[in-house]
Amino acid sequence: MPESDQRLFFLLQQAAHRLRVAADRRCLAAAGITTAQLGALFAVREGGLTQRDLAARLGQRESAVTAMVTRLVEARLVAKQPHPREHRAVVLQLTAAGEEALTRVAPEIEEFNAQLRAVLGEAGFRQTAEAVGKLAREEW
């Protein structure tokens, strides 16, 4: 097996870590949220999600999402509403403050993507986005 094949996983892991640290720093400065919280806010914005749905959408354990939702509710970025059909479940809703956080972080996301395009080129950016999307959807 070529060394480059053996190193691919390590390189993906290293790149993901460095990108997440840089993006977290920007998101925290712009809106006081992490990239993990940003992903949750984007998902909640789509509407109708329970915590279980959010965990599935994010590919995380329910216990981790419960803790994140608690922080988002305490920060008043997300609200819990009674589920219309399941008496023990709640539906998550983005608050006005949550929407404002997404508005504040949008320029940072645009700048981050511009920097990625500068490194990868437009065609490379699109190809990488497609490839990483496939990896994210793959059942391992």
Rank of each mutant, 00 (worst) to 15 (best):
A22C: 12
V78K: 04
F10M: 10
T95L: 04
H83Q: 09
F112R: 02
P82Q: 11
Q13R: 06
A23L: 15
L102V: 02
L120Y: 10
C27G: 08
A123G: 08
A56V: 14
F125Q: 01
R104N: 06
Q51D: 10
A16S: 15
T50C: 11
E86G: 03
P84C: 03
A101P: 02
P82M: 04
R104Y: 03
A75D: 01
A89S: 13
A101G: 08
T95M: 00
G47L: 04
D24Y: 05
R18P: 00
E122P: 03
L135C: 09
R26A: 14
L41W: 01
R76A: 12
A118M: 08
V91Q: 08
F112K: 02
L11E: 11
A55S: 08
F10Y: 06
A15N: 15
A96I: 05
L28F: 06
M68E: 05
R45N: 14
L28V: 13
L19P: 00
E100N: 06
C27A: 10
H17Y: 12
V44Y: 04
L92H: 01
A43K: 12
V105R: 07
A89E: 13
F112G: 13
G98D: 00
F125A: 04
E122F: 09
A123E: 13
A36N: 11
G48L: 08
D5M: 07
A106N: 08
G124V: 02
A43V: 03
A23V: 07
F10A: 13
L135E: 05
A75E: 00
E130A: 10
A114D: 15
T50F: 04
V119G: 01
R7K: 07
G98M: 01
A16K: 03
A29V: 04
A97T: 05
H17Q: 12
R61H: 15
N113T: 13
